[in-house]
Design a protein around this nucleic acid. Structure first.
Length: 105
DNA sequence: CCATTGACGAAGA
DNA sequence: TTCTTCGCCAATG
């Protein structure tokens, strides 16, 4: 299995209505990849991977910066799972960040 | 091999 | 709080 597949494995484990940040995923993999690299991998995430559950460290949707990407889609998908965004377009990570069970690490 | 470009993020100003 | 700056690293030309 290719090394970066480990990133997708973690993303697939994120429960509905919860999220992980690029940086946290980097830490979960012992910084084998930088948060930036994780973002790059997400760009080519395979079908079936809940990519919308990965947000930036500020609790915002980084996908909205991509010109060639449906604006607001990520937010829509998250709201459909119960995630609430503030007026600043950011969510409260304290509330939605998923803390992986110790036994799975 | 070198430069540039991102779905990043911490630290300063 | 918002904006730069800088380190990060895979991919691309």
């Amino acid at each position: 299995m290719a090394p970066h597949e480990l990133v997708y494995d973690w993303v697939r484990k994120i429960p509905k209505g919860r999220v992980l940040t690029y940086g946290v995923i980097s830490l979960l993999l012992s910084k084998r990849f930088s948060a930036r690299a994780v973002g790059w991998f997400m760009h080519g995430s395979p079908k079936g991977v809940p990519w919308h559950r990965v947000v930036n460290a500020s609790g915002g949707c980084s996908t909205d910066r991509l010109p060639d990407f449906p604006q607001g889609l990520q937010r829509h998908l998250l709201e459909r799972e119960g995630v609430v965004f503030g007026t600043n377009g950011k969510m409260k990570l304290k509330k939605y960040l998923w803390i992986p069970p110790v036994e799975k690490r």
